[in-house]
Amino acid sequence: MLRVTEIFYSLQGETSRVGLPTVFIRLTGCPLRCGYCDTSYAFSGGKRMHLDEIMHEVALFAPHYVTLTGGEPLAQTNSLALLTALCDQGYAVSLETSGALDISHVDTRVSRILDIKTPGSGEVAKNHWRNIDYLTAQDEIKFVLCDRADYDWAVEKLRTLKLDSLCPVLFSPVFNQLDSAKLADWILQDRLPVRLQLQLHKLLWGEECAGR
């Protein structure tokens, strides 16, 4: 059993799969409380579903891409079985995780999107740094940046940990808080080997569209 907030079909708004039609499975619950969180409605509630129920609902969309998100998906241990079942079904599967929980047991066929929490998030102490040891070229690292201080902190981590040698690195501004053009200028000035990430779904449908 898993507690599910919603299952929906939309365009992927983030990561290197941006723009691709994707089924999203949003699990309920999260041990973090980031100041900019846009899915706080997934902290509680949800519907208890058997794995086969979830698989059936996903199949109705006949998707190629499936993303498991939250909340924090790994807060439910049965999420590992769901990820494996999705891979076994032949879907291209990605996992969006806060980086606070161990990713080492996630099926190796899954693309893991690891969100490294910055000081501005209010949850920097929750980063599980050992996760970096498990990343491969098919994974991605994401920094969500609140301000210049977050940017400088992320650049320091990028360089000292050589993160771009592990997998693609994404720098994303907090929507309506850090100007995206300003972030683009900083990235160009510092010649960073990162991808500027904007949240496509919010640009298309507005800020209140997390569950579109």
Results as ranks from 00 to 15, higher is better:
residue 6 E to F: 02
residue 77 T to A: 15
residue 63 P to E: 05
residue 57 E to N: 05
residue 206 G to T: 10
residue 160 T to M: 05
residue 118 T to W: 03
residue 96 E to S: 04
residue 202 K to G: 11
residue 9 Y to L: 07
residue 61 F to M: 01
residue 43 F to H: 11
residue 55 M to V: 14
residue 6 E to D: 13
residue 200 L to V: 07
residue 47 K to A: 07
residue 89 Q to Y: 05
residue 44 S to V: 07
residue 174 V to R: 00
residue 31 P to V: 07
residue 201 H to F: 02
residue 163 L to W: 03
residue 180 S to N: 07
residue 166 L to R: 14
residue 115 D to E: 10
residue 182 K to M: 04
residue 55 M to F: 07
residue 28 T to M: 14
residue 40 S to M: 09
residue 73 P to L: 05
residue 198 L to F: 08
residue 108 T to C: 10
residue 154 A to R: 00
residue 21 P to G: 09
residue 15 T to G: 03
residue 163 L to C: 05
residue 141 I to K: 07
residue 192 L to P: 05
residue 119 P to W: 01
residue 201 H to P: 12
residue 180 S to E: 14
residue 55 M to T: 12
residue 68 L to Y: 03
residue 208 E to R: 15
residue 182 K to L: 07
residue 191 R to N: 11
residue 159 R to H: 04
residue 125 A to K: 08
residue 149 A to V: 04
residue 61 F to A: 08
residue 151 Y to D: 01
residue 105 H to C: 11
residue 25 I to C: 13
residue 91 Y to Q: 11
residue 18 V to T: 13
residue 48 R to E: 09
residue 131 N to F: 08
residue 205 W to N: 06
residue 7 I to Y: 10
residue 95 L to C: 03
residue 197 Q to I: 13
residue 190 D to M: 01
residue 77 T to H: 15
residue 131 N to S: 02
residue 156 E to L: 10
residue 93 V to L: 04
residue 8 F to I: 03
residue 137 A to H: 11
residue 152 D to K: 10
residue 108 T to E: 15
residue 50 H to I: 00
residue 3 R to C: 12
residue 7 I to Q: 11
residue 212 R to G: 06
residue 3 R to L: 09
residue 76 Q to Y: 09
residue 50 H to G: 13
residue 151 Y to Q: 03
residue 68 L to H: 03
residue 144 V to F: 07
residue 131 N to V: 08
residue 84 T to K: 15
residue 201 H to D: 12
residue 141 I to H: 02
residue 101 L to V: 06
residue 33 R to D: 11
residue 75 A to T: 13
residue 177 Q to N: 08
residue 94 S to A: 15
residue 206 G to V: 08
residue 48 R to W: 12
residue 83 L to T: 03
residue 43 F to R: 09
residue 64 H to N: 04
residue 62 A to G: 06
residue 166 L to F: 11
residue 10 S to E: 02
residue 134 Y to G: 04
residue 181 A to V: 00
residue 50 H to T: 13
residue 8 F to W: 03
residue 129 W to P: 03
residue 205 W to F: 15
residue 36 Y to C: 02
residue 18 V to G: 09
residue 115 D to T: 01
residue 2 L to S: 05
residue 147 D to M: 01
residue 35 G to I: 04
residue 84 T to N: 15
residue 191 R to L: 05
residue 172 S to T: 06
residue 190 D to Q: 14
residue 205 W to H: 12
residue 157 K to C: 02
residue 182 K to W: 12
residue 78 N to M: 11
residue 207 E to W: 03
residue 6 E to H: 05
residue 167 C to Q: 07
residue 165 S to K: 11
residue 81 A to V: 10
residue 4 V to F: 08
residue 169 V to D: 01
residue 69 T to K: 14
residue 54 I to E: 05
residue 37 C to S: 03
residue 198 L to M: 14
residue 52 D to L: 05
residue 146 C to F: 05
residue 189 Q to S: 01
residue 69 T to A: 07
residue 197 Q to A: 09
residue 78 N to W: 06
residue 71 G to C: 13
residue 64 H to G: 10
residue 169 V to N: 00
residue 66 V to K: 10
residue 14 E to L: 10
residue 158 L to V: 02
residue 68 L to Q: 02
residue 126 K to T: 12
residue 151 Y to N: 02
residue 14 E to Y: 11
residue 22 T to H: 04
residue 190 D to E: 13
